[in-house]
Design a protein around this nucleic acid. Sequence first.
DNA 1: CTATTTTAAGTAAACGTTTACCCGAGGTGC
DNA 2: GCACCTCGGGTAAACGTTTACTTAAAATAG
Lengths: 361, 361
Amino acid sequence: MGWLAKRPTITDVARLCGVTPATVSRVLNAKEHFSASQAVREKIVSTAARLGYVPDVAARNLNRRVTRIIGLFASPQTHLAEGINESLLEGITEVLRAGGYDIFFELGAGTQDNPLPFWRFDGAVLMQAPRHETVAELERRRVPFVCINERVGNAAAFVLADDTMGTNRALEHLFQLGHRRIGYANARATYFSHYSVTERYATLLAGVRKRGMQLADGHDVPFSSPYDFLQQVVVAGRATAVITYDHHIAVMLVGAAHGLGRRIPHDFSLICFNDVFPVALLPPPLTAVAVSGREMGRVGADMLVKNLLDPERGKKKEIRIPEDLVVRGSTAPPPSAKPRGPASDGAGRMPTTAASASAKQ
Amino acid sequence: MGWLAKRPTITDVARLCGVTPATVSRVLNAKEHFSASQAVREKIVSTAARLGYVPDVAARNLNRRVTRIIGLFASPQTHLAEGINESLLEGITEVLRAGGYDIFFELGAGTQDNPLPFWRFDGAVLMQAPRHETVAELERRRVPFVCINERVGNAAAFVLADDTMGTNRALEHLFQLGHRRIGYANARATYFSHYSVTERYATLLAGVRKRGMQLADGHDVPFSSPYDFLQQVVVAGRATAVITYDHHIAVMLVGAAHGLGRRIPHDFSLICFNDVFPVALLPPPLTAVAVSGREMGRVGADMLVKNLLDPERGKKKEIRIPEDLVVRGSTAPPPSAKPRGPASDGAGRMPTTAASASAKQ
DNA sequence: CTATTTTAAGTAAACGTTTACCCGAGGTGC
DNA sequence: GCACCTCGGGTAAACGTTTACTTAAAATAG
């Protein structure tokens, strides 16, 4: 299959310049400690440009035994648009490309019918439920990798959201508003094995108990129907506020609330995790727990680069990216509470956790 | 930097099996017309497995002069979550990986400070406002490429949404419901150079005229504020229905409508392009123009693969993917119209354009 | 039993770079 | 005038595969 256009090689450039390939290589790679005359240097550069010479990366890599390829692994079913995945990706590509690495996009690789390619990855980033086979294969090949917003395998570093912080901020905000009985809409089944599910729920349980609040029952199961949820938790369960595992569920609840004639935040308050489109645009705009996906991506990629440069130094197992609470229009005092000015609430105990409620990212 | 684990080579396998590298290569690549004894064959396979031998792709590519790499180019600012980009990506990766190609993810490559990498791409996919420099560079290197949901450069094929079909279906649906004066929320400035902007607007103008409908003024400019829009077009402009360029704008309008106390579809109807999250979940669920991004991606990737196998055959310049109308709760007869049953409207002239209103993709 | 085909490999060149080592010429120090 | 250094660049091996050509042995034909 010789259909690929014949490209000029370093030898072609050398021949036209009357020098050897070695000289061309050294000039074009701007080697330190190598002195070439100005004349030769210019001739090589201009000739290379004229010919449209581009180094063959395969040959270069073969010789250098380094690829500068980073594999990016996620599950086959990954929705890049889901949650913060998109901004993660932005942060990752930003840092990696700045470091001169190229990104190989391996969505769903590692299965039998979709095997991990033979590429010699210098490193890898695992981000959204990568397959176990993939992880095992990377470990077998001794490819250093980081996990971003994910916790699998023996990664050089884990970069995770600080869900404990986020959950507590949400809880404290509701507590300050006067809510004492809250509902929790847990993750849908698809995401149920993600670390954040466990962490958010556990923090919630502890936080509720610590503050003397109550949690409506049955929230350790995957979320299914928004109407059932509202019926059970808000109507029958008398929760005055609801926290949802993610924005997707929150959107469903907003829709269902309208359908049932329940108004937010008049009848119940709503806070969701993930401050992404469209939570700020909904009627009402939602109070949300925000984390900078971009920052997570950047930090993770940076850890990987550091690890690649110095395998020992780059080991810092777990980094948490702080979560903020962005207060919007979906939270208010509970229906039964006497109306009171937001600042006059609790006198000297301002809700400091919600103080940094500026739109991030 | 010899920090990369020393990997077994084909020579190692050969030595342990007492054969030459050539034999190993032929066995492992399952060459037709090459006969090896069962014993040798098994020994090679098991030894390779035991050693964890993985071919060095750099060496292989160097020899074969083919990389099986497809570059995927989009703009630096591309939001993968925007519109149908995500499902496009799914379709593309699906086909490409099935064809044995690997995907190079070049978000924002091709600039001076972020140069197009030296990789010898076998082909490329351009999808969301790739930089002009990138396109020029690909053409200079004679890399065959396809454009998916985008129209730039001398692509081997263009795969585009059939916006004319979609626009007309939306228009016809509104016409059948009795709407005669409609508003159009054009794209935000960021997307204004995309082909779909021109196409949707032009079709709208023609369609409105053809049906004797009216279009509220001033819609050939980028969308900015949802409140201004509603004020000008629905309140002052007396439009009874609104079509939006995308789902993002529609979400903003739903929010603004609530803020202004206007109910959908009671006070005005709403149709948006892009049947993606969260339009089906909003209060009310939106009637939307849907196109299968996955299908677009698949078709585009398939065209590229065909073109790679046979540069002449793969030339089929422009393919349109049909657009459907998914009817939901945001469209109804205009406020002034006498209430009438949906089936009794127009007697023998059922709105056939909306007949295929099943959720796609 | 010899001639020919088939089977089962081996040989070696080639892919395009990079880089450790070498070498000649001109300049310096004394 | 000789030893020594620096400049400017050439030589050739190496990176790990693949593959066109060759070959020795075994099977088959006549």
